[in-house]
Nucleic acid binder design. Sequence first.
DNA 1: CTAGCATGCTAAAACGATTTAGTCCGCCCC
DNA 2: GGGGCGGACTAAATCGTTTTAGCATGCTAG
Lengths: 362, 362
Amino acid sequence: MSPARRNRTSGGEPNSGKAVRLKDVAAHLGLSPTTVSLVMNRSPAAKGIPPETQDRVRAAAAELGYRPNFIARSLRRQRTFAVGVLLPEISEGYAAGVLGGIEDQLLREGYFYLVAGHHSKPDLFDDYLQLLTERSVEGLILVNSPIEQALALPAVAVAGHREIAGVTNVVINHEMAARLALGHLAERGHRRIAFFKGHAHSADTESRWQAIVAASADLGLEIDPRLTLQLSGDAAGKEFSPEEGYREGHVFGRKLLETGARFTALFAFNDVSAIGAMRALTENGLRVPDDVSVVGFDDILSAAFQNPSLTTVRQPLHEMGRRAAAELLRKLSASGEDSPAAITIEPTLVVRNSTAPPRSDA
Amino acid sequence: MSPARRNRTSGGEPNSGKAVRLKDVAAHLGLSPTTVSLVMNRSPAAKGIPPETQDRVRAAAAELGYRPNFIARSLRRQRTFAVGVLLPEISEGYAAGVLGGIEDQLLREGYFYLVAGHHSKPDLFDDYLQLLTERSVEGLILVNSPIEQALALPAVAVAGHREIAGVTNVVINHEMAARLALGHLAERGHRRIAFFKGHAHSADTESRWQAIVAASADLGLEIDPRLTLQLSGDAAGKEFSPEEGYREGHVFGRKLLETGARFTALFAFNDVSAIGAMRALTENGLRVPDDVSVVGFDDILSAAFQNPSLTTVRQPLHEMGRRAAAELLRKLSASGEDSPAAITIEPTLVVRNSTAPPRSDA
DNA sequence: CTAGCATGCTAAAACGATTTAGTCCGCCCC
DNA sequence: GGGGCGGACTAAATCGTTTTAGCATGCTAG
């Protein structure tokens, strides 16, 4: 039908109208494909080929516009230079941020990646894992994705749930995060601090809470159980909806007031719940930061746009993705048998306008 | 070295420890690879093979855990079932939203995609285009990416700049957007409306502005040039930084006040500039929406979290991505010679708390 | 009795590279 | 004069499929 369909080549015919193959370059030069391949790949075996010939080959390749076919090369070399990325949902801020870092690193190193969003459904996760494997990805990066069994491929997890043999976890330094946030508040004179704990099934909840307990002890702060609310979330998967996080923060902000217990600051589990709580507080006549200081976690984009803008612990998502990708590539290269079980990333505190010293009469 | 390296197979040897190949299944059954392939692919040519044999083949494949090698298949069939996506920066909200829709559609149809972020640098764009082509993607989706020349592959653009032969553009219905926003304001009694125009080099600026002019005429609204500010942005590439958009909105909000011209509403070019402007207005003693109503564009996540929450024209990013992907797949399938030059997507108005009737004395 | 035709398969050639194991030629040197 | 060697290449196998073009075999019909 179409002109491109009209190629009845067999052996090494001219093959016009289609992409130039190695064979075409070879024929053009009156050389064998082997020679051309050797030269183009700067193979060590090409040392026997005189420089003039090498130049001729490269000139011809350039002239004809030869581009090696990656698929054929992959088949032969058993390398695809591609990795798979599994995440709950690509358009969600956390994953998108991490993915940005992953991409930077991978493209820089000549790799591409295939992404699949499993929407926190275990069977979708399994399906995509299967599909990625069939596509011969060389390794996996799991973002915010729980895994149960060991994987057949080298893998790195970002915000992974549990420890799995052979999977390196990229995690935020929760101790540092807690010290930063609580230190900031304590420095300004806050003693009665309320907390939102994360959802029970979220990866970071437990370690973050332990870090908070430890940091509080260090700073001589007491944790009042009445001021400690555990975000409930809904069924799995819903935890990633910002709207819901916001609503929850709103509800829990109100709950905090209803306890009647006094507090001058709130350290929320994440920015969206912090934002919801800020709204609840102001709606109830409290001013942020004059009456209550609020610290979030993540530094999502809207944190800076709040009124007041939100002081928060920033997770360097891009950096986390970058490190995850770098570590995976290290695992893929021959050298790395000795892969660490965890890579710790340091958070930073972004001080904005939602925190201030407590009023002297508070 | 490693046990996996120890496969000196030639012909059809057992091949233990490695992935099961078609050949292995065939050998296991005492049949030829041809037969197994025909059966596994439910090829029409398999009608000559009796059902019992077919069952035997499928049973053996299942038992041995046979998974076809996608690379080999791609090479032979000259199909990769992969498309390339080019965008400025993956972690940015607009692109991430669109990408979510692209993914949904592609994975549903058995495709994967390779993404590359060119950071608005033309040479990076060209490089990645080249790399994607080498990887034999079957088509391209361009998100917010200017193209100059025609492309060698079937392509669909989302928020594409100009019209290129053969490239279908997925665009928002700007007329509808203008009618929704201005109608909403006019209905509530606003007559003096200020505007932020987009950056000169942004794709949507011109068509959106024309739509605004048309809708204003229809509604009997006059456009005051003093109240029409063109966002300047910086060099190419910077237009995508939300921080800058915000800062610009902030500056321009103040400028608007300095003109001395009276206005009761502002229709911003996007949400971030609307948010910046809201901040500037409140800082100058004006209340939103009591003194000035503000309408944004995009409905980014933080729009809902503002105080007051932002009324805005929502671009259904997910839907736009989905449609783009669907159209590309249609182009790829034999049927579609008749591809439209544009696909128009309908925006919706999300009414929140940044708009209200003007004060009667305004 | 045999041409013809299903039926149930298979051999072998692609796809476009990489890589192992040579080949051929000329020259040197004893 | 011939063994050895280095230089410049190349033939052919291979990666794991798909697909075209047949090949036996047995039955039926004329």
